[in-house]
Design a protein around this nucleic acid. Structure first.
Lengths: 214, 214
DNA sequence: CCACGTACTTAACAAATGTTTAGTATTTTG
DNA sequence: CAAAATACTAAACATTTGTTAAGTACGTGG
C-alpha cells in the first residue's frame, strides 16, 4: 500500500490523482487498472469513480493537472529567467534544464510528458502547440537581440530546437544507457548541454566544400 | 525487404502479423484486442493464438519483425549510401530521410518505432543501442575524413545527433501541426532538412561574447 | 437534535478479454 | 491411398475490467 501522499496531508481526491499520475506515467493508461490506482492511493476502487466520474474522467483530470504543472515549468523558460540565463553565457535554456532544476529526481512528470506527446490525445497536442508558440517568440527575440542567428525558415528552426530538446526527455533511458549518464540529472545534463551547446554555437559538420568547425 | 503490403499471397501468419503491426502502431499494444487483430486479418481469433502462442508471443513476433525491417533500413545509412550522400553535399544522412525514401507513406513503421522506443521494452532498447553504435562509428569516420568536426565528447555528440533525428519521427504529428508540413513526406522533409543542415553546419546561436553566424 | 449531503466501503454485475477445448477441413508425407 | 500433421473455426471458459447499487460513517446547516 504505497501511500503516494507526497508528504502533505492531501485531500483524497488529490492523492488518487497523484497515484494515477505516477502509475499512468510508468505503465501507460491502459495497463493500469482502477483497482491498482485505488490500492496505491489507499482507498477503495469505488471512491476513484466517485471523485472522477469514470476512468476516462480520471485520465482527463490527470492530463489537465500534468499539463498545468508542465506549463508552469515551461513558463519560467519564457520569462525573465531565460534572458538572464542567456546573458550568462548558456547558449539556450532547455526544457530538460528546467526539469532538473524544478522537479525532484523521482518525479513522474518526465515519463508522463512522454505519454502526453506520444499518444495523440488533444492534451498533448495542445501542450506542444503552446510550447512551440513560446519557443518561436523567444527565438524571435533572441534573433532580434543578436543572440541567435537569423534563418530563412524560423518555423522549422523553432520546431527543431524544441523537439531536439524534448528528445532528451522522450529518450531519457536510451540516452542514459548510451552515454552512461542520465541526462535528467545535474551531472548528466551538464555533460549533455556542454556538447549540444558546441553544436548550436559552432555546428557539427562541414558545409559543402568547406572545413568543419574546429 | 520489409514488405508491409498486405498482399494476398502472404501466409496467414504473415497477414496476422502485419495486421497486428498496424493496429499496435496505431493504438498501442494494450488497446488492441486479439479479436480485432483477427478481424483485420480476416481469420478467427483462435488462429491468432494458434500461430503465435499468446498475445504476448504475437507482440514479440511483431517486435522482432519490425526491428528487422527497421534495422535493414538503418543499415543502408551505415553503408555506401551514406558516404555517397555526404559527398553530394547533404550534411548528413538521417533516419527520417531513409523512412521517406524506403517506406510507403502509409507505413505503420514510424508509429511502431515510436512505440518501440517509448515503451521500455527490450526490443526498443536493443534497437536504439544498435543504432547508436552505428551512429558513433559513422561519426568517427566522418571526423576522420574531415566531414564532421571533432568533439571532446563523441559519445554525447553521437547521441545528440541520433536523438535529434529520431525526434522527427517521434514527434511527427506535432511538427506537422507546427510547421504545416508532415516531415515524413518528401516536401516536408526537404524543408526540414534545409534548416537543420544550416544549424549543423553553422550553428544557431552566438558563442558567449561573439556574433551569431549569419 | 434532525435532516442532509458528502466521503467512503463492500459487494456485486455486465461486458470484454485472453485463452482453451473440441472438432473440421486441408495439406503433407510415407 | 492412408495416415499423420497442420491450418483453421466455433463455442465455451475463467478472469479481469470498468462500473454501479446499496448502505454506512460523518460532518454541517437549520
Amino acid at each position: 500500500m504505497g501511500s503516494v501522499t507526497d508528504g502533505r496531508d492531501l485531500t483524497a481526491r488529490a492523492t488518487i490523482r497523484n497515484a494515477a499520475l505516477r502509475l499512468f506515467a510508468e505503465r501507460g493508461h491502459d495497463a493500469v487498472t482502477v483497482r491498482e490506482i485505488a490500492s496505491a492511493a489507499g482507498v477503495s476502487p469505488a471512491l476513484v469513480l466517485h471523485h472522477f466520474k469514470s476512468k476516462d474522467g480520471l485520465r482527463a483530470a490527470v492530463d489537465a493537472h500534468a499539463a498545468e504543472s508542465l506549463d508552469a515549468l515551461f513558463a519560467e523558460l519564457g520569462g525573465q529567467e531565460l534572458t538572464e540565463m542567456l546573458a550568462r553565457g548558456g547558449a539556450s535554456a532547455s526544457v530538460a534544464e528546467a526539469f532538473v532544476q524544478v522537479f525532484p529526481s523521482g518525479s513522474p512528470l518526465p515519463a508522463y510528458l512522454r505519454r502526453l506527446l506520444l499518444t495523440n490525445d488533444p492534451a498533448g497536442a495542445a501542450l506542444f502547440a503552446r510550447w512551440y508558440a513560446t519557443t518561436r517568440g523567444v527565438l524571435d527575440a533572441m534573433v532580434e537581440s543578436g543572440i541567435a542567428a537569423p534563418t530563412e525558415d524560423p518555423a522549422v528552426r523553432a520546431a527543431f530546437l524544441l523537439v531536439s530538446d524534448l528528445a532528451v526527455i522522450l529518450l531519457r533511458e536510451q540516452i542514459a544507457a548510451a552515454i552512461g549518464n542520465d541526462p535528467l540529472t545535474p551531472t548528466g545534463l551538464a555533460r549533455w548541454a556542454r556538447d549540444v551547446t558546441a553544436v548550436y554555437t559552432g555546428g557539427a559538420f562541414a558545409a559543402p566544400g568547406k572545413e568543419p568547425p574546429s
